[in-house]
């Protein structure tokens, strides 16, 4: 009989990522409801020291495989290792992060474990003893209630949506040997090209300042970047400004870009096309700055300023700088 709530924790370069604490906290809540334990799988190289940190967020047992093969994430090594330890222990529920790595790993695992998974969930709960999840579909134009069956019942959780709360668990570390077969490791990471800016990714940013068609050209983005710097925010862009070549594709927010849910989304010169609104309307607070009072973005905004963004944005930067300095 499948038992226990499991998570796959995510670390990068020996540091646990915040989303790991979010899924641990959520796993604890579900496990308490079921009267079961929380276990985590942690893979990496030289990571034994960070394993106990998961205990602070309600994890009772951490299955840890510490091996140079796990230094950089590869689907082959990680999916094989997690599948091995999951099959041995038969958990009822398996939660993962809907991060870039988590999406790749969780999908391959769902295939290996021949089970059902709800991706990128914004709510999970126990219903009739099983896992039920709420997740955006059509980039958030509607939501689906998904009932997951199979074993384990899997869900990946959207970063930044679930709270991370300290709640001590037993935190016992169990080392395991995933016994990987060399011939199963087909892909290789040849290089990791780091983004020198050190900016938080849009999908994990707490504040996003986005520019749209109203920016009129790439040369005007410094005013957005200055505001983002003051607020510690990440810069985003609408499809119009990406398609115009003003911003890189990785900055695009919307149904055909990144779907984001920051605490604060500041839309500058963005009219609010349906596909853009779909990608950002689950932000906790939305600010719109646009000179067109009829722009659809104002219908989604908590605070709106109808004015020329070139006049307003630098003033917002100045006011925020004064407040935060």
């Amino acid at each position: 009989m499948a038992k226990g709530v499991w998570i796959v924790a995510e670390q990068r370069e020996g540091t646990l990522r915040k989303v790991s604490f979010e899924i641990a906290t959520t796993a604890r809540r579900l496990a308490d409801e079921l009267g079961e334990e929380v276990s985590a799988v942690l893979l990496g190289s030289n990571i034994a020291g960070i394993a106990p940190e998961l205990g602070k967020y309600g994890v009772d047992r951490i299955y840890c495989a510490d091996d140079p093969v796990f230094e950089t994430y590869t689907t082959d090594a990680y999916a094989a290792a997690v599948a091995t330890v999951v099959k041995e222990n038969d958990p009822a529920i398996l939660l993962m992060a809907a991060s870039v790595q988590g999406k790749d790993l969780s999908s391959r695992l769902a295939g290996k474990l021949k089970t059902g998974m709800a991706t990128d969930c914004v709510e999970v709960r126990i219903a009739d003893g099983g896992l039920a999840a709420k997740r955006p579909m059509y980039a958030g134009k509607c939501y689906g209630e998904v009932v997951v069956s199979g074993s384990p019942q899997m869900a990946s959780l959207r970063p930044n949506v679930f709270p991370a709360a300290e709640n001590p668990g037993a935190g016992e570390v169990v080392k395991f040997d995933p016994a990987l077969k060399a011939e199963a490791l087909k892909t290789k990471i040849v290089e990791v090209q780091k983004d020198a800016s050190g900016k938080v990714d849009l999908t994990e940013a707490e504040i996003i300042v986005s520019g749209g068609r109203g920016m009129k050209g790439s040369e005007n983005y410094p005013i957005i970047e200055e505001l983002a710097d003051v607020l510690g925010a990440t810069v985003g862009a609408s499809r119009a400004s990406v398609d115009a070549g003003w911003r890189p594709q990785s900055d695009q927010v919307g149904q055909t870009g990144k779907v984001v849910s920051p605490n604060l989304y500041i839309a500058c010169g963005i009219s609010g096309a349906i596909q853009h609104l779909a990608g950002m309307s689950s932000s906790k607070y939305i600010v719109a700055i646009n000179k067109d009072p009829d722009a659809p973005i104002f219908a989604k905004a908590d605070y709106g300023i109808v004015d020329d963004l070139f006049k307003v944005v630098p003033e917002v930067t100045a006011a925020a700088k004064k407040l935060l300095s």
Binding site: G116, E145, S149, Y303, G304
Partner: peptide, 24 residues
Amino acid sequence: KAKVAGMTPPPERPPGKIIEGDDP
């Protein structure tokens, strides 16, 4: 094994506030 049991429209956002005035 992952069945969409029902669909709902997105939650309505409360009406926002337009900050009035002439001076940016």
